[in-house]
C-alpha cells in the first residue's frame, strides 16, 4: 500500500534565488483521483511559485468546497491557508486581503463553487477588483458527488452515464471581463507550458486575476461526448498567443518566430512577452477579448492563453485608500485611537 511519497528528491534539483529546491513548495500527497487535472494544476502552481522566488509564507491559499477546493492542501505546505464555506471563498479572501495587503492571495475554486453556489460572491469580488488570483479548476461536473453536470458543462456535452446536457454553459471568462476583471486568462491543466507563465503573470498582476483552467475529471467526465475530456480539449484548443514571463530586470531569452510581439509591463516592472496568434484580438480591449472568446466558441473551440489585461488596473485598496500597512503591523493605539478620537469623528459628522 502506498499512500506515502518518499521525501527523497533528485540530488541535482536546482535551487531558486532564495536557495529553495522545488520540493519546499510542495504540499501533502494528493487524495484526488489518479489522473485528475487538478493535480496537474497544483504542480504548475508549485513550479510557478518556485520560479518566481516567492517566499511561501508570503502566500495565503483560500478555497471553498469541492475537489478543486481540496487542492490547496496539495501545494505550498509552508503557506497560509483557509478552507472556507462552499462558495464563500471570495468574502474570506476580501477580509484577509483588507487586513493584510502584503500577502499574495491565491484563491482556488471550482465550477460548482464559483458558477453555482458561489456565483453571488464571485461577481462581487470581480467588480471590486480585489488584488488576488482567482483560479477556477473547471471540469464541468460535480466530481465530488459522482459527476452531475455543473453550470459550466457545455450544452450538448454528454455525461458518463450517457445523458446530454440541455442547458447553456456559464462562460466564466467572458462574465469576468463583463464585470470588470482586470486580468483574465484561460488554460488547460494538460498544458503546463502555457499554464505556468499565465500563473506567474496572474500572481504579479495588481488587481483581480481570473484564470479559468479546464481540468478534466478523469473519473466522471473524461468520456466520449464530453467537451471537458483530455482528448476533446486537446483537439479543440485555440490559443490567443504564446507567452513568456520574465520577472523584473531579467532579460527575456525566449525567441519567437516573426509575428506580432507585445511586451506587457506589469506594475512591478516584470514583463510578459506575448506572441500573438489570434487575429482581430487586442488583449487590452475588453470588447475585442469578448469577441475573440465568442468567436472561438461559435467555432466550437476553446480559446486559451491570456485573454484580457488592464495594465492600469486600480485595485480595491487603492480605490478605498486604505492604510498601506497591514493591520498586524499597526500599534494598538493606531488600531484603537480611543474615545477622544471617536468623539472627534462623531462631532465631525454632526
Amino acid at each position: 500500500m502506498t499512500y506515502v511519497r518518499s521525501t527523497f528528491r533528485h540530488p541535482a534539483l536546482p535551487k531558486n534565488d532564495l536557495g529553495y529546491t522545488v520540493d519546499y513548495y510542495e504540499g501533502s500527497l494528493s487524495t484526488l483521483c489518479a489522473g485528475c487535472g487538478h493535480d496537474s494544476i497544483n504542480a504548475a502552481i508549485v513550479e510557478a511559485c518556485w520560479e518566481l522566488n516567492i517566499e511561501p509564507h508570503k502566500v495565503a491559499k483560500l478555497s471553498g468546497i469541492g475537489c478543486s477546493s481540496k487542492s490547496p492542501a496539495y501545494f505550498l505546505s509552508n503557506s497560509h491557508g483557509f478552507n472556507s464555506v462552499h462558495g464563500r471563498m471570495p468574502s474570506v479572501a476580501t477580509g484577509a486581503n483588507l487586513a493584510n495587503r502584503d500577502l499574495i492571495y491565491f484563491g482556488v475554486s471550482g465550477d460548482g463553487d464559483t458558477a453555482s453556489i458561489g456565483m453571488g460572491q464571485f461577481v462581487h469580488v470581480v467588480r471590486r477588483n480585489l488584488n488576488m488570483v482567482y483560479l477556477v479548476m473547471n471540469n464541468g461536473c460535480y466530481g465530488l458527488t459522482k459527476g452531475q453536470d455543473s453550470a459550466t458543462a457545455d450544452a450538448g456535452s454528454k455525461s458518463k452515464a450517457g445523458s446530454v446536457n440541455l442547458f447553456e454553459a456559464i462562460d466564466l471568462a467572458s462574465l469576468a471581463i463583463e464585470l470588470g476583471a482586470t486580468f483574465v486568462g484561460q488554460s488547460f491543466s494538460g498544458d503546463k507550458e502555457q499554464l505556468i507563465p499565465l500563473l506567474k503573470a496572474a500572481m504579479k498582476h495588481k488587481g483581480f486575476a481570473m484564470l479559468n483552467v479546464i481540468s478534466p475529471c478523469v473519473t466522471f467526465n473524461n468520456n466520449p461526448g464530453s467537451t471537458k475530456s483530455y482528448d476533446y480539449v486537446r483537439e479543440h484548443v485555440e490559443i490567443t498567443g504564446t507567452m513568456d514571463f520574465a520577472p523584473m530586470m531579467k532579460e527575456i531569452t525566449a525567441s519567437y518566430e516573426a509575428g506580432s510581439i507585445n511586451d506587457l509591463t506589469m506594475h512591478d516592472g516584470s514583463i510578459i512577452r506575448l506572441h500573438k496568434l489570434a487575429k482581430d484580438w487586442d488583449p487590452f480591449d475588453p470588447n475585442s477579448a469578448m469577441n475573440a472568446i465568442h468567436h472561438a466558441k461559435r467555432k466550437g473551440e476553446i480559446l486559451t492563453g491570456l485573454l484580457y489585461m488592464d495594465q492600469d488596473s486600480i485595485e480595491l485598496h487603492e480605490m478605498l485608500k486604505t492604510n498601506e500597512k497591514p493591520l498586524n503591523l499597526l500599534s494598538k493605539f493606531q488600531l484603537c485611537p480611543g474615545s477622544e478620537t471617536l468623539a472627534k469623528i462623531n462631532a465631525g459628522l454632526r
Binding site: S6, T7, F8, R9, H10, L13, G35, D39
Partner: peptide, 15 residues
C-alpha cells in the same frame, strides 16, 4: 497514455 501529467507530478525524483 492520456497525457494527464499525473506521473510527472507525483514522481519524487523528477524522472
Amino acid at each position: 497514455c492520456i497525457e494527464c501529467d499525473a506521473c510527472v507530478d507525483i514522481c519524487p525524483t523528477a524522472c
